[in-house]
Computed example of a mutant assay.
Amino acid sequence: MKEKKINIRWANTNDAADLVMLNDAFNGVGMSIDEVKGNLTITNELIALAVMDDLPVGFACAQYCKSFCYRGLQGEVTELYITEVARGRGLGTLLIAFLEEELRVRGVTSVKVLTGKKNEIAIKTYERSRYYRQEEVLLQKNL
């Protein structure tokens, strides 16, 4: 069986159509290509794309900020998605490491992740990247 060629790189506006498809599969948000292109040009979000044999098969996003409450910049991995056909190849771990390296270069000292407590596959992926569980409660309100 031929080994798949895997590449992790930064997403750009040329990837908008692929990002629309991947995000819709993951989040069910039917954004347009123009919306995604616009968002890519104005955001400070880090968006990494996983490509396997020249086909985009996943993405991960991270953000970071400075708070007066903490020393150093705080980061968060906000999204991580791999298509079903590409799962089990370590792409999630590669995407996380790719984001972490850029966050580190930018001065981020701590990174957090929020995922569903029953999302064991994602939790195991993050734990393989040395994230650990904490007891916190998420409260949310739509405005």
Rank of each mutant, 00 (worst) to 15 (best):
L22I: 07
N23Q: 13
N27K: 10
G28P: 11
G28N: 08
V29A: 13
G30L: 12
S32A: 06
N39Y: 09
N39L: 15
E45G: 01
E45V: 13
L46I: 07
I47R: 04
L49M: 08
V51N: 01
V51C: 06
D54H: 06
D54S: 09
L55S: 10
F59S: 01
A60E: 00
C61L: 00
Q63L: 08
C65S: 07
K66T: 10
K66C: 06
S67R: 15
F68C: 05
C69K: 11
C69I: 09
R71N: 11
V77S: 11
E79W: 00
L80G: 06
L80H: 02
Y81K: 02
Y81I: 10
Y81D: 02
I82E: 04
I82A: 03
I82W: 02
T83Y: 01
T83Q: 08
E84R: 09
V85D: 09
A86L: 10
R87C: 07
R89D: 06
L91S: 04
G92F: 10
T93S: 14
T93I: 10
L94H: 05
L94V: 01
L95G: 04
L95T: 02
L95F: 01
I96Q: 02
I96L: 01
A97D: 07
F98D: 00
L99T: 02
E101N: 14
E102I: 06
V105M: 12
G107K: 12
T109C: 10
T109W: 09
V111Y: 13
K112N: 12
V113K: 14
T115A: 09
N119W: 06
I121P: 11
A122V: 14
A122E: 12
K124F: 09
T125V: 15
Y126T: 05
E127S: 09
E127N: 06
R128D: 15
S129C: 15
R130V: 12
Y132E: 14
Q134P: 07
Q134N: 15
E135K: 09
E136L: 15
E136N: 15
V137C: 13
L138D: 04
